[in-house]
Design a protein around this nucleic acid. Structure first.
Lengths: 165, 165
DNA sequence: CTATATCTTGGAGCCGACTCCAAGTCAAGA
DNA sequence: TCTTGACTTGGAGTCGGCTCCAAGATATAG
């Protein structure tokens, strides 16, 4: 039998950069599945668990709220997302919003660059919220809590995904 | 008499996508300078103020904490950062971290794309465990090597979404 | 047997970033 | 005059995401 390597929570924390407390917290709120326990009750982690935690860490870096991560973790847990068409939609939506986020970040970089290189004139990074009359509330999405474009989605900008790589 | 247009807080909120309450909050914590008041005490905003708020909105989208925005706002307030060499350093640092963030986001996009297009394999989306003493790492953890099947390669320990073990 | 270390649990506390509220001011309209 | 509406203020409350206990179990070393 393949002996899979296992890790203590401490080792896991070290490998993932997420604190032990936080890992337990994620388990508590069921963002992570309940970890297996040894006879003494200690948690055991293996590669796949660590990868899940790393995925969380990665999404966290992008500013995504924990609640929104659930679908990602579900997808990562079981292989084929195609079986969950709703999930596919979710993923697409997230992809969109991440692309937008990248654009925002790029604008900040531009802003900085401009400032750094003598910048005098600045064309701020908010070209998306022109005086278009936006109703403050993006309608509450029906079924899934996820959607939450990082606010102020540009009105009517289809913005097809960047060419698949 | 110039045509400098001024705005109420409500209009400003609308234009920037930031709520009135939040704008007042930003002023309260001095992230924004105290706005001018009319005789009746009402706040007045003009273009430059709106731009500052939009800058905040933009930085917010990138996940930056309010406290970290202060230098940016200082810079935007008075044009030339070169006079504040310390600020220049700050800006450079932030630029760095934003670039990293973009990379993280791109990885998430890749992750999603992989999942969406039938994904089979993935490479890890994060591997910057800050100055880590990578103690016992069984493998060299190559950044760009494609291993780590994230799923479907669970020999003996299948995780199903519906059955926690 | 005792001390030390590593874990467990439940729960309290903290911080950032809002969000909401009550009470009050002022201007114009019916 | 009374009412409405847009604003003001200070402060309280909320929520997400940790972070920090205290009390207790178990494992190994001396």
């Amino acid at each position: 039998m393949r002996d899979e390597q296992t890790f203590t929570i401490k080792q896991t924390a070290r490998q993932t950069g997420i604190s032990e407390d936080t890992i337990r917290y994620y388990e508590k709120i069921a963002l992570l599945p309940r970890a297996e326990r040894k006879d003494n009750g200690h948690r055991v982690y293996r590669e796949e668990d660590i990868e899940a935690i790393q995925l969380i860490a990665c999404l966290k870096k992008t500013g995504m709220p924990l609640e929104e991560m659930r679908p990602f973790l579900t997808v990562s847990a079981d292989a084929d997302p195609a079986e969950y068409p709703e999930l596919v939609e979710l993923l697409r939506g997230h992809r969109e919003s991440i692309i937008n986020q990248i654009a925002s970040l790029q604008q900040v970089v531009d802003f900085i660059d401009m400032k750094l290189e003598k910048g005098k004139y600045r064309r701020d990074c908010a070209d998306d919220i022109q005086d278009g009359v936006r109703t403050e509330e993006p309608k509450p999405k029906a079924v899934s809590s996820v959607q939450m474009s990082y606010f102020s989605a540009s009105p009517g900008t289809p913005k097809s995904p960047t060419s698949p790589r």
